[in-house]
Simulated assay, not measured.
Amino acid sequence: MKTDLDSRAVTVMQDGWSDIHNTPVIAGSVHTGDSYFISAIETGNNKETADYCATFTRDTMKIAAESFGCNVTVVVTGNEKKMDSMGKI
C-alpha cells in the first residue's frame, strides 16, 4: 500500500452501518482507481453525530497521510443529513 499510495492524490470514502448484532460501525478507505482499506471502528455508545463522523474522517486522513504518504483531495460519504453537516465542519 505504501508503494502504491506514496505521493498520490486520493479520495477518502467513509460509510457507516450496523453489524449483525446491531453494533454501529464506521469504516474509511482511500480510492485512487483501486480501493485501500484504512480503518474501521465500532462506535459503541458514541452517537454517530456530524462531529463524531468528522473526527473519524480527520483520523482517516491523518493515517493515510502519515502511514502511506498520500494526499487526500476529496472526501465521499453517504447523503444523510448528518453527513451534509459533517461536510460543513
Rank of each mutant, 00 (worst) to 15 (best):
H21L: 02
K62D: 06
D59W: 00
E42A: 15
V76P: 05
M86I: 00
E48Q: 05
G28C: 04
T55K: 10
A9Y: 13
M13T: 07
Q14Y: 10
A65V: 09
F56N: 09
I20M: 14
T57S: 13
A65G: 10
R58C: 04
P24Y: 15
N22L: 12
S39P: 05
A65M: 08
Y52C: 10
Y52R: 08
G33N: 12
V25M: 13
G87E: 10
S39C: 15
G33L: 08
P24Q: 14
V10I: 14
H31R: 02
M1T: 06
S85Q: 15
K2I: 11
Y52G: 03
K81I: 04
M83G: 02
H31V: 04
S18N: 09
D59T: 00
G16E: 11
Y36C: 15
V25F: 12
N71C: 09
M13A: 03
M61Y: 01
E48N: 07
E48Y: 00
T57V: 15
D6I: 07
V75M: 03
M13V: 01
T55V: 08
C53E: 08
M86W: 08
G44N: 01
D84Y: 10
T11I: 14
K2L: 13
S29V: 06
A27V: 08
G69M: 13
T11D: 14
D59N: 14
N79L: 09
T11W: 08
F37E: 15
D4N: 11
K2W: 04
C70Y: 11
T73C: 15
D19G: 12
D6W: 11
A27F: 07
Q14T: 04
V10Y: 01
D51A: 03
K2M: 01
K47Q: 03
I63C: 01
A40V: 04
G87S: 13
D34K: 13
T57M: 12
V30D: 00
A65P: 12
K62I: 02
T77H: 06
E66F: 02
A9W: 06
S35T: 14
D84S: 11
M13K: 05
S85W: 11
K88N: 14
D6R: 10
A9R: 13
N22A: 12
